[in-house]
Design a protein around this nucleic acid. Structure first.
Length: 590
RNA sequence: GCCCUUGUAGUUCAAUGGAUAGAACAGAGCUCUUCUAAGGCUUCGAUGUAGGUUCGAUUCCUACCAAGGGCACCA
């Protein structure tokens, strides 16, 4: 009994009462004790017919009850006129079966099957720090990429980096002045801060502007050498961070490439009336197309392309390399208004690319003490934040000994999980007030909570195997999980659907959550909102932990034990698949 | 001044126009001779203000108040 089937049954029943049925909703109630599905059809129809919604609901229920369903336990009218459906143990047994059979693939859908998707995120700038804002973009982008991939799209990841521009010139200026050989990415951050400060001084400004031009045209050997070296150091540093975070990009794009291309596009469309000349610059008067938009400069007085022109070039370069059906660009929300202007320009030039482009923005990471600024050097780097969290995780791991072999690997897994969870738990687009003490938690709603729940489930499964209740075997491409019934009879292998004993006829809350996973994944992907998935996984884990607390799962003397073990196995599958979609690793032990 | 976003327990976050507004942290109290206590169980506590639309509003509309971001050559 899936949602579609049930919707049709409800519609049919109402129609056979002679009612005209329009749109109505069928959802999982917020409160899990209110049943598995709930519809508001009676409330909607009663309004049109000016009837009492409760009475109408009763009539619809009576009509539905004429048909016998073995997957529905009971139907009842509740509240103002909601009809609640409680699924039967048969339904749950079957769904458990298919869940265990699907294994790693459970949760995937095909809404984007056959499509090509390109996701751009993180976008740090060489010569500047990789700060906590980049961690945000990376975390969200990685999860979106995985969700889109799980929806069937051929997915590529891209990172776009600003390797030219005033910020680079400022850093290079400071490096030359101090005759400092670049040895670490940290030096570059300092150099950038120093250059920014110097830029306020008119004399230094002239020098920095000159360097900026030379970087663009590569006319000065000494500057080229310092520039190339610094860029290499930066990129190597970023690569290390990506490794820690678990991101592998397919494409790297640079502003030094997109600028040239973007400029050509703008000049090309200058004649065609999209752009105009104004005060020596080339502009796009977006307000002529939409009063809420404003004019932006695409090529400045100096003849250099701005961010906007570069983006035009980027859209085209991306498409040439990977002809996408969907191009997702993830940025901070401070560029929202520019992006709207940009998309309007793109729409006039490459309508099909504009249609395929989806801009997602995340909020800012704000510190309780005020705004972070790399210009003044008051930044928290991504690296230092991960290290600070790691110190706390390390302490925790040292205090408990579970025979973990590679402790540093676990430290990184848990630290990254704590960080990613705190970023993904809220709806995207909103600012995060980042308070180190409060934001990074190992208790309650947290990444480590989910990981701990997973490790616990794995530990129970190992014990079940030792007690000969379950047998985990990998054959071919599918995971087979076989359970044995313990009794006087010869131990036999059973499918999960044959395990429920009369004693456990009652359906547990855990089961009511498990089968919903694919729906949650689909919604998260469709709305580009990983926080739905996080909320679900947290509820699911809480439900499992409560289950663990109130019952003994592995117990050879208990006939319902194999069924409980099967549920534990199902839980571990869903949680691992879910964590994977968030870009969080699931440790076997912790 | 104009445009965009956001106001929910003490704090950080949830809630496709639906039922008694959910969690977590912090506070109070239980719980390891039992499969991982990074856990479980009790308990206290909230929709910025004023209107409107609706059978029903945290959600939609209007005004106000408050916070953040943006508004021509940085990104």
């Amino acid at each position: 009994m899936n949602k579609e089937k049930l919707t049709n049954l409800i519609r049919k029943s109402a129609q056979s009462l002679g009612l005209e049925v329009g749109a109505f909703s069928l959802e999982h109630p917020d409160e899990i004790s209110h049943g598995d599905y709930s519809t508001n059809i009676a409330l909607i129809l009663a309004k049109e017919l000016k009837m009492n919604p409760k009475e109408l609901a009763e009539k619809i229920v009576a009509e539905m009850s004429k048909t016998v369903f073995d997957t529905i336990e009971k139907i009842e009218v509740a509240g103002a006129g909601f009809i609640n459906f409680y699924l039967s143990s048969k339904f749950f047994d079957e769904s458990l079966n298919s869940l265990l059979e699907a294994g790693d693939t459970f949760g995937q859908n095909s809404t984007l099957k056959g499509k090509k998707a390109l996701v751009e995120y993180t976008d740090p700038n060489p010569f500047k720090e990789f700060h906590i804002g980049h961690l945000m973009s990376n975390t969200i982008g990685e999860s979106i990429s995985r969700l889109v991939q799980a929806s069937g799209a051929e997915t590529k990841r891209a990172c776009y980096q600003g390797d030219v521009g005033l910020h680079v010139a400022k850093a290079v200026w400071a490096l030359i002045k101090n005759k400092k050989e670049v040895v670490s990415a940290g030096n570059l951050g300092q150099a950038y801060a120093e250059g920014s400060k110097a830029y306020e001084d008119p004399e230094s400004k002239i020098e920095i502007d000159a360097i900026n031009k030379k970087i663009y045209d590569r006319s000065d050997e000494d500057i080229n050498r310092i520039y190339d070296h610094g860029k290499t150091i930066s990129l190597e540093h970023f690569a290390e961070i990506y490794k820690k975070l678990g991101t592998e990009f397919n494409f790297y794009f640079f502003e030094s490439e997109t600028g040239k291309f973007g400029k050509e596009i703008v000049l090309d469309y200058l004649d065609k009336g999209v752009f105009e000349k104004s005060e020596g610059a080339i502009i796009f008067p977006a307000e002529k197309h939409d009063p809420k938009l404003h004019t932006r400069v695409f090529i400045n007085k100096e003849g250099l392309p701005t961010y906007e022109a570069k983006e035009l070039g980027l859209a085209q370069i991306k498409y040439d390399l990977f002809p996408y059906d969907l191009s997702i660009v993830i940025t901070g929300n401070e560029v929202n208004d520019y992006f709207k202007v940009l998309l309007k320009a793109l729409e006039l030039i490459f309508p099909e690319l504009a249609k395929a482009t989806k801009h997602l923005s995340h909020g800012m990471l704000r510190l309780p003490s005020g705004k972070m600024s790399s210009r003044t050097g008051s930044v928290i780097t991504g690296e230092s934040l991960i290290e600070d969290i790691s110190v706390m995780v390390r302490k925790k791991i040292e205090s408990s000994d579970r025979g973990i072999e590679d402790k540093e690997r676990l430290v990184n897994m848990v630290a990254v999980a704590a960080l990613k969870y705190s970023i993904l738990k809220q709806s995207p687009g909103r600012d995060i007030i980042f308070d180190f003490e409060k934001s990074i938690s190992f208790e309650g709603d947290s990444g480590p909570y989910l990981q701990y729940s997973y490790a616990r489930a794995k530990s129970i499964l190992n014990k079940a195997q030792e007690n000969n209740i379950a047998e985990l075997s990998h054959s071919g491409s599918t995971n087979n999980f076989l359970l044995k019934i313990f009794s006087a009879r010869p131990a036999g292998l059973r499918k999960a659907s044959q395990l429920r004993s009369p004693a456990t006829k009652e359906v547990t809350e855990l089961e009511r959550f498990l089968y919903r996973f694919p729906e949650v994944v689909e919604r998260s992907a469709l709305e580009y909102a990983p926080h739905y998935l996080i909320t679900y996984l947290t509820d699911l884990s809480r439900s499992f932990n409560a289950f663990y607390g109130e019952t003994k799962i592995v117990d050879p003397s208990d006939p319902s034990s194999p069924h409980k073990v099967a549920l534990t196995r199902a839980f571990s599958i869903v949680l691992k698949n879910g964590l994977n979609l968030l870009g969080i690793q699931a440790p076997e032990k912790m």
